[in-house]
Write a protein that binds this DNA or RNA. Structure first.
Lengths: 336, 336
DNA sequence: GTTGACTCCCAAAACGTTTCGGATGATATT
DNA sequence: AATATCATCCGAAACGTTTTGGGAGTCAAC
């Protein structure tokens, strides 16, 4: 409501002094500072955001791009992560704006809009592709950004990622140790870094034991995708006895397929992401998850540090994957 | 990168003319307009957002408050709704910022921060309570806002809501028509408007047929809450034969309880929200959903219209509820 | 009584845009 | 030939803040 000029006038002080008093500068006497603070409190004064942003040449905003895949925007806990991120950013005076890609516009155009209009101080990119044009653009412009998931970019950039390769490697080995030989992989779209990495982990484990890595179907990372991929795979004569699934959402679709095909209830399954819903499926879904605590907070911290100018090399977090043992990974001993 | 001054200089024009040319005013000749546009395009010029916001006294931002209930932020499709809203707002030059409530701060303080700092042109409130202090505050300040869910506020305000009372009334009647007499309700927290409304619908239907409305347990609107509520209700001697559940998430918890108690597989169940996951549970979850198409887009439209000054009375949408028949609502004929 | 240090305060510029109120010629009207 | 009309353009103010570069006054030291 009120602005600095009015506040200054009512106090018989200059705008400068009021501004500096509120910012706690030492060159205003303690008495005046207190008097100003009281008046500001009482008037409910808050500095006008646009004016400060203009003057300080900072947008006080960070944008997160939302993928526009039809009907699917990311795992169910994604919003929770964003919320944590926004909350932590807010302590530094930054707000988080969500930036879905409008139909008819590319993700690149959207980044451009935000960057060239100086609407943001940094960006958060999710669902990175192996070769990601958003990353290339932001690097060329020198805008700070952090990605959720690595890329194959030649230039380093800050990221947080789970070590999906190791995770899927280990998970596949576990199935092998339990006696499984025909272990299938329900893969996500291979242009996504995470999906490619998880598939490589599975492949590596199969090769480790001299087994063929041929039971693989690629599909959209959704319940429906998992369902369709599983149906396709289970109709093969060399049907797998265990499935390693790129995401929990796909795994939930797989569960449905397992209920529908004969003998499906003997097939073991593990997903990835540890969605809360996993405890409530039937059978309860075994899964994997990234270690490392509050993800949103970590993103916020990385964003703040990259804005502050820390080098990318120090802002890369690769977290180990841990297993979440529930029921679906040991439904029966593998036949033959 | 470039600003108006540089652009004007390089064209040998005044700042005024360049600005007006880009905004398509009629008092700059077609030839100059074209010349300016070309130069602007080529320089990748975008007006500085902060400067425009300051000058136009508009924040070009809308904030949506995120509930801070521990571990739960809303139904799984909530982000999708936000994305649709953000996308539509963007066509009017507005961005959507997400505003989680920091720990130690009330939702009210948060609204205050946004409003008094003139950081937003409007707010979107979700998970409204029957008596909602955020609503009261925004009304007192005269800031445009739209709510997801009605309130009991004496003053009208724009909202979008589903007619939960009718929906739950109808659903309960359907169970009665199928022969059920003991129909329970798994209720959400009653200070939420939607939860209260849904319970009233169930109660009304029970009373319609002279049945007691005593089989009701209130719990957190989460899978866990539904699970616990169901366990409590199923251990009663007068165990229900059918359950009407305030949300799908609670219903998914109920499904788990039904698997764990003896005879649980004969109990019918319906939820509300039509989460995508409902097709993939076992049994597939019958549900209800609000009619009315793209919810996010509707919110955006209401927000724009209330910012434009349309009266609240014209900005209230109460949508009918439709049923989504899958398997869980007819698991067996009711015993006795 | 001059100098220097120190405390407290302020005028003015700057951030980049939009917009108000003309100014300047050229053309049409009387 | 004077006047009105029109098409183009522009200077300057304004939005509300932060920050630069002092200015005035007090006090102590020389």
């Amino acid at each position: 409501m009120a602005n600095l000029k009015q506040l200054a006038q009512s106090l018989g002080l200059s705008i400068t002094t009021v501004s500096r008093a509120l910012d706690g500068y030492a060159d205003v006497s303690a008495a005046t500072r207190e008097r100003v603070r009281q008046a500001a409190d009482q008037a409910g004064y808050r500095p006008n955001a646009s004016a400060r942003r203009l003057r300080k040449q900072r947008a006080e905003l960070v944008a997160v791009t939302l993928p526009s895949e039809p009907g699917h925007i990311g795992p169910a806990h994604f919003l929770e992560m964003l919320s944590g991120c926004a909350e932590h950013l807010a302590t530094a005076g930054l707000n988080l704006v969500i930036a879905p890609v409008p139909s008819g516009e590319s993700e690149l155009d959207m980044c451009r809009r935000f960057v060239d209009g100086q609407r943001v101080d940094a960006m958060l990119l999710v669902r990175t592709k192996r070769r990601d044009e958003r990353v290339e653009f932001l690097q060329s412009r020198g805008i700070p950004f952090v990605t959720n998931g690595r890329t194959e970019s030649a230039i380093q950039h800050p990221f947080i990622d789970g070590d999906g390769l190791s995770g899927f490697h280990q998970a596949t080995l576990r199935f092998q140790d339990a006696g499984h030989r025909r272990i299938g992989h329900i893969a996500g779209p291979q242009d996504y870094f995470f999906a490619h990495e998880r598939k490589k982990g599975w492949e590596m484990a199969m090769r480790d034991r001299g087994l063929p890595a041929d039971l693989c179907v690629e599909q959209a990372p959704t319940e429906q995708g998992g369902y369709e991929a599983a149906l396709a795979m289970l109709n093969r004569p060399d049907r797998p006895t265990a499935l390693v699934c790129a995401t929990d959402e796909m795994a939930i679709g797989v569960l449905r397929a397992l209920r529908e095909v004969e003998g499906g209830d003997t097939i073991s399954l593990v997903g990835h992401d540890d969605l809360p819903i996993g405890s409530f499926t039937s059978p309860a879904l075994s899964s994997m998850r990234m270690t490392g605590g509050n993800l949103g907070r970590s993103f916020a911290s990385l964003l703040l540090r990259t804005i502050a100018g820390e080098p990318a090399e120090k802002l890369q977090e690769l977290h180990a994957i841990e297993f979440v043992d529930r029921d679906s990974h040991q439904r029966s001993s593998p036949a033959k």
